[in-house]
Nucleic acid binder design. Structure first.
Lengths: 203, 203
DNA sequence: TGTACATCAGTGAACGCGCGTTCACTGATGTAC
DNA sequence: TGTACATCAGTGAACGCGCGTTCACTGATGTAC
């Protein structure tokens, strides 16, 4: 049986989708209710038929962002060789494309520096999202037989988030690309994922 | 001859100091002119005797923050063995104390994720600040005879910034401390700065 | 040294504006018979 | 199938509020003589 969503449910989902996009680009405080509703093709007054207040929306938008992260992690890590998956994930996460794409990018790289200012409920979901993301990395590292996946997963996530944040902050395209390239190489080398290392291992 | 600052210059410096603190905690968009002037012991109307507009202040506050960074880098890296300096810098940057101290913390860890929204002039200074910070790390790595200081300095800065941002975003003190501890250890090991490595080298 | 005056850092009321939120209303949709 | 009615998602005017900014004014400070 196909699960039908009511008209209202679909409208609400559209608002949350737009909020998740806008927050990644303009920050949680930089997204206004009126502008958001306009992007969803509605007028601002209807907002409160869907959410108790703005904080309620922010909380839902955070969850929505981490659903994208969950999909990303599944797409790269589920049902494939964990080393291949991690290598591809690192390349995608630290790509120039990801750097330029704010709307659909990683919520941790977009919002972790303002997480401490999020309303309580939203911050709680953000926290859970970080733990989930790190858990997926940890499991992949463990599956590929890495030593100390507990530590390496935190270190990996730290450099991924920091490198993408730095690359986006820098004003020079060349420098931005270099920052990402360096971290891709350093992380793959550190985790034993370099093509050369793989070739050597298979010989 | 002692350089005397006029009363107005000292007042202006006080406003910029407070702005630099407030922006690191509340973000560049979360600092209001009236609240800021109140913190500096003044009323809001006087603001425009010192700055052309709010953007002008933000630009000056960014510069002010990176002056703190410059002082920090000098304190840890100037006139000491570069490996000792880097080790101490990493321990300080990724300390629980630094994690809790927003007001005087690293501007890159506080604002890089909103740098792309800064007014043009401020963004330019932020960019310069990042290059300066990275340059200091690069020089220290080069001085200690590290291979590829160009790449390692970017990678180091990325993990430092990412780790501190993550540790601040997480809601659990234990997890936050662990994130920092892991990156301290991983970075020192990667750069050949671990006490054990140092001991081994001196034997 | 004392008086008169110019300077100007800082005050505080006021402005237009956009924010989040409320609410009386509209009009399309689905159900009852 | 057609009509009458209830439901309720969405509209748009209005609200109080805090924002950045302006400006006429104050009053402390420093200089001229």
């Amino acid at each position: 049986m196909i699960e039908k969503k009511s008209h209202k449910e679909r409208t609400r989902a559209r608002i949350v989708d737009e909020a998740a996009k806008a927050m990644r680009e303009h920050g949680s405080e930089g997204m206004g209710v009126a502008a958001l509703m306009g992007r969803a093709g509605l007028t601002h007054g209807g907002f409160y038929a869907h959410f108790s207040d703005r904080d309620d929306l922010v909380t839902n938008a955070i969850d929505r962002m981490f659903e994208d992260s969950r999909d990303l992690l599944r797409r790269y890590l589920d049902g494939v060789d964990p080393a291949d998956g991690l290598r591809a994930l690192i390349d995608a996460y630290l790509s120039d494309r990801a750097r330029r794409t704010f709307e659909r990018g990683c919520p941790i790289a977009a919002l972790s520096q303002e997480a401490h200012r999020l309303p309580d409920a939203a911050r709680e979901r953000f926290h859970s999202g970080i733990l989930f993301f790190r858990g997926a990395l940890r499991n992949a590292l463990e599956a590929m037989g890495s030593h100390d996946p507990d530590a390496l997963s935190w270190s990996l996530l730290s450099e991924m988030v920091g490198s993408l944040s730095l690359a986006r902050a820098v004003r020079d395209e060349g420098a931005a690309s270099e920052i990402l390239r360096v971290s891709r190489e350093q992380l793959k080398r550190k985790l034993g994922l370099t093509p050369s290392a793989a070739k050597l291992a298979s010989k």
